[in-house]
């Protein structure tokens, strides 16, 4: 027992109306599958953990309370630089612009 195609199409149409899907009996590619895809940008962009608080923010927050705040890493770095300078191994001084006069040919 075969069912005529027109009748099958009617059934399909009714079904599409009922379940609110697109009626597309020829199977034409309308690209709707692209529109159905979820955006994955936010998930990808949150891969690396973000910087939450820097020492400077922390300092700014507690400055008005007049509390003693020490940044140990910064103190260590300054000590290191001072030690280098004492040995004469520090970074060279910046040239003054007044000293650098281009030679005239």
């Amino acid at each position: 027992m075969s069912v005529p195609r027109a009748r099958l199409l009617d059934l399909m149409k009714a079904r599409c109306e009922l379940f609110s899907t697109t009626f597309n009996p020829e199977g034409i590619r309308t690209g709707n599958k692209i529109l159905r895809q979820k955006l994955k940008g936010p998930a990808l962009a949150s891969y690396y953990p973000r910087k939450v608080l820097t020492f400077r923010d922390f300092y700014k927050e507690f400055e008005p309370l007049n509390l003693m705040i020490e940044n140990e890493e910064e103190i260590d770095r300054l000590d290191h630089v001072a030690a280098l300078k004492a040995r004469g191994k520090g970074t060279p001084r910046k040239k003054r612009t007044a000293d650098v006069v281009p030679k005239k040919k």
Partner: peptide, 24 residues
Amino acid sequence: HSKRKAFEAAEPERQALRYIIRNT
């Protein structure tokens, strides 16, 4: 990280173009 953020910003545009390309 920069690429991820650039992709996130451009994703709607890319999807729109992809839709136009796929729509016969």
